[in-house]
């Protein structure tokens, strides 16, 4: 078996390949559903209805998609430069931590200033959480995959300590949670009687800004060049170190902002279960989107729909919610393969 590059890549193939791949993932997964003894159609019906079937379902899905867009962008930007930031989960918590320290009464401003301020400090904190790994990488060539992954565990334990100690809300009845974000900092609701807040619009604009940045600016060009071929980029006079640090700050900052949408938006305060793995799911989001910033929007909404839908499916019929994670993982793997076959054809010899 041999792979050879296709000479011309048709647009039809580029669009249809991921869709076919996701359909394939659903088919693989129906094997697992049959094992549970439930009807495949009923299961996917519940999944779809729970994720997209009503005004409430859609608002919940978009609400869940909000942090996923941010963490998805964080992964997409970093992976594009082949900087493997797997630490979005920790960076998200760092952002949330910054919001908690500064947004629970330490600083008071009108909402029009307070909300942008929280996003700014969240981004700075997220970048800060990635500063160690990126410096270790650029100076000592320490592999960032492992350092960012391990930092997730360290940061989560640190947040755990703060929530049981200095940051614990005395009014929380012994529950390990921080004080609530002050009213001026709370993200206003987008739809009445739902949890959807303006964080979603901010996530959408972030995706457009990142897309424009990657496509139309020299920074974006340099980031893509470093990812495509590091030696060629160096030869062209691009400072690799500077670009990698820039990517890291951008990526960490975006992940940090996911922490803001959750503390100042959905939850209102910092807890240890603030993120059910948004940082890790962001990697899946980015991969499904083939690292394209605008594609991240669609894939984040798709993933959020699966997660929200699976929750309601497992309430309605007897299928463990973990089916959602299996479905996402299978989608990621099959989309990866499908995108390869967009670019290459197989020659059997």
């Amino acid at each position: 078996m041999q792979l050879e590059p296709r000479e011309n890549i048709s647009m039809l193939r580029v669009i249809s390949a991921p869709i076919l791949a996701i359909a394939a993932a659903f088919i693989f997964c129906s094997g697992l559903i049959m094992w549970t003894g439930e009807s495949v159609f009923a299961a996917y019906g519940h999944l779809f209805k729970g994720g997209f079937g009503s005004r409430f379902a859609i608002s919940e899905t978009l609400n869940r998609a909000t942090p996923l867009i941010f963490t998805g962008l964080a992964a997409a930007v970093a992976f594009r430069a082949k900087f493997w930031n797997i630490g979005a989960e920790g960076q998200l918590y760092f952002g949330a931590l910054a919001a908690t320290i500064l947004g629970t009464g330490a600083i008071t401003m009108p909402a029009a200033l307070m909300i942008p301020f929280l996003f700014l400090v969240g981004a700075l904190a997220g970048g800060l959480a990635l500063l160690g790994p990126v410096i270790l990488k650029t100076t000592l060539k320490v592999d960032e995959v492992v350092t960012t992954l391990l930092l997730n565990f360290i940061i989560l334990l640190f947040v755990n300590y703060l929530l049981e100690g200095p940051l614990k809300d005395p009014m929380s009845m012994g529950w390990p949670q921080a004080a609530a974000i002050i009213d001026q900092g709370v993200l206003p609701a987008l739809l009445p009687r739902t949890r959807l807040h303006i964080g979603f619009l901010l996530a959408l604009s972030a995706a457009f800004i990142v897309w424009a940045l990657m496509r139309y600016t020299i920074w974006g060009y340099e980031i893509r060049a470093v990812g495509a071929n590091v030696n060629a980029a160096r030869f062209a006079g691009i400072s690799i170190r500077k670009t990698v640090i820039l990517v890291a700050m951008l990526s960490g900052g975006l992940a940090g902002m996911a922490g803001i949408t959750e503390t100042a938006g959905t939850k209102g305060y910092l807890t240890l279960d603030l993120s059910p793995g948004f940082g890790y799911a962001g990697i899946a989001v980015a991969m499904l989107a083939n690292l394209h910033p605008l594609g991240v929007i669609a894939s984040a909404i798709f993933l959020a729909g699966i997660y929200v839908g699976a929750d309601s499916m497992s309430r309605a019929i007897n299928i463990p919610t973990y089916i959602a994670d299996v479905l996402v993982a299978l989608s990621v793997l099959s989309v990866l393969v499908s995108l390869l076959f967009v670019q290459y054809r197989v020659r059997w010899k």
């Binding site: 697992l32 890790y280 899946a284 463990p320 973990y322 089916i323 994670d325 299996v326 996402v328 993982a329 299978l330 990621v332 793997l333």
Partner: peptide
């Protein structure tokens, strides 16, 4: 890793 861990839990 995503596939193997989610499948284990499932």
């Amino acid at each position: 890793t995503m596939l193997a861990s989610s499948l284990s839990y499932f």
